[in-house]
Design a protein around this nucleic acid. Structure first.
Lengths: 209, 209, 209, 209
DNA sequence: AATGAATGAGAGTTCATTCAT
DNA sequence: TATGAATGAACTCTCATTCAT
């Protein structure tokens, strides 16, 4: 699906508003006003508010295809390093696309729109498969232990990152970082999260119970 | 604050609907209908839809005071065991009060109502302090390593559990558990999560990098 | 009709609120709250909000029976002086019972409640008759001219006073009296109005065209 | 501000209903129904019921700019005649726009909406200034006495006319005019009022006390 | 292709009143 | 006698969507 400039502008505005006010808390008037387009354009271009959400979701989902392929076939990189590289990739993705992930979280909770549910399901499936390949690869090479529950691994990965995202205000306050610039804070958090999750992954992938 | 039966019924219904359809996706008419009360009762008892949310949040928050005190002062229990006991307690809490936690997640994303924000903040503060005590205690006794980031620890704890909650449908499908009874599934998940998080905690608390 | 203390309190509060916010702009809850009584008491004591208005109107109307009788039969007082005395009496009445007159003005405009309309009608009739007597008396004694239109006379009397009441804020500002105490302002206005209306009455009653 | 036909229709209907039932006694449904438009149109066109009132008030206010200018600069007309011409102009205005004046009276009593208050204030200011010019002119030419209180003059003018408006039913009954056609009654009242107020003005402007 | 005008449906809230106690 | 609890009805306003142009 290819969108013109106005459609992309609408999608971008909708993403921001859905992320900050929720789907039901955002009116098409809000979106139209902030996007600087006529109200009727949303229905005209996307059919309905709901279909706009689906378009936005579909678009952003397709942007999040992990570049796991190159990693997988590069035999020179050690399995754990591959996985660590993947972890950084995830952290980057979530931090860069916070708004989309916020929307995704709420949609998972509310669980109403079957199209969205299906898209999320596909996303999860791809993630699971990609990481499963890495795990299998590592296990074959003897770098990873047996009996790794990939879903628990992913849960901890995604859960830790999104939880940080949800509690960043509290994190800032607790660490006295209220006044540092946002981008600087981002870098700091990413650094911390990276070390933290890599440590967890190393444990989950290599330490025997 | 003490509520009568009808108020509790309204709160309970509101909790379920807010969790499943979101705050803005739930109308007071929905709540009134499902609770079997007159629509005017919501304003009559709580003042407004927003204040009903606050009442519900306030009530459930006060219910989630962790019984960490008894753990803390029992000198016979080893620090790691104390922490593991706490982990189980958290998992129980979240699994039992899934609806409330779903609401809390969305409220953190949307971040609109200052009263709710404040209540969530308080909840986090209490959690942080309680776990910090346990960590300090364990460090003094030499059971835990130095340089433990308590917020990252909690993020991983809460994040892993809530992520499991959000993805339980996918988890079921992936593990072919679609057809087992809900309570049985719960037990299985709790068991898994317990082992998983305890393993993570042991690593975070005791393994040097 | 005799009212107990609580009923009188309700009537007093209702009068103030009806005067300041209008009948339809005042809720029975407002009245009950400000009067410090239970909401149900208004219906209980008066039957309805409308009947409360009628009770209030009826009560205040009966309070406004002019003491014209003594004037009429005092043969020692000259007709013009009698009339001037009556003018002062009216000015006093209106200024003292401003709230009631405000209500009466609005009720005349809205013209909805037949009971109120009837009470206002009676009030006007009594006024007309009383002043007519004075006029006839003055004419018989040769003090007043013939062909006096009593209704125009009364209109100018009442109209001038109530108009002053309605525009007192503007009058204050125009004359730089914003900061003087309210009672002092009242006295000043009454003095001015008295002279002004007496002058008009003298003209209307004695000057030939 | 320019309004289209539907907006003017709404304003016209609102004026009639506000005048007859008061602002709070008129629902937007009433207005929409009687104007034959969809209920949502009121908010759509004017923003809110309150803003509709302001629009109506603003529109009618701007219509009431007295044509005093031509009078002022015509040196051939004697001051008293100028003033009498102005009196007739006022009487015409109020009688023609009775509904608006009824609304204005109630708004002055209730005194709630600051926009309306401000518009009324402006109207009064313009009136005062216009009449003040005429008075000064007449005084310079020796036609009017000194020490004329312009506000009392206006109060009596406006007060007498509006009072007549409020009591026209009683006036009809008293004079046995219940059955004559409305327009004929209007003419009769205007004629009477004109003579009456001109007489008052002549006294106020020329007779020494 | 694009949009201003318009609308039925439904939102949250307040209303005057009733009723069991 | 007096009232807290409760309610159906009505309130104003916003909603997503449609339609003629």
């Amino acid at each position: 699906m290819i969108y013109n400039d106005k459609q992309l502008q609408i999608i971008g505005t909708a993403e921001r508003l859905f992320a900050n006010k929720g789907f039901d808390g955002t009116s098409v008037r809000d979106i139209a006003d902030e996007a600087g387009v006529n109200i009727a354009m949303i229905s005209y271009y996307f059919g309905s508010k709901e279909k706009l959400m689906e378009a936005l979701f579909s678009k952003r989902s397709s942007d999040i295809n992990l570049q796991v392929e190159t990693l997988l076939h590069n035999e020179e990189i050690a399995p754990l390093q591959k996985m660590e590289s993947l972890v950084d990739s995830y952290i980057d993705k979530v931090m860069q696309k916070q708004q989309f992930f916020k929307i995704m979280i709420c949609e998972q909770v509310i669980n109403k729109n079957p199209v969205i549910i299906s898209l999320i399901h596909d996303l999860k499936k791809k993630n699971t498969e990609a990481i499963n390949k890495l795990i299998k690869d590592g296990q074959q090479k003897g770098a990873f232990k047996k009996n790794i529950d990939v879903l628990l691994l992913i849960n901890t990965l995604i859960g830790s990152i999104t939880q940080m995202m949800l509690t960043s205000d509290y994190y800032k306050e607790y660490n006295g970082l209220q006044d540092i610039p946002e981008d600087q804070f981002f870098e700091q958090v990413k650094e911390k999260m990276s070390k933290h999750v890599k440590f967890l992954f190393k444990a989950l992938l290599t330490y025997e119970v």
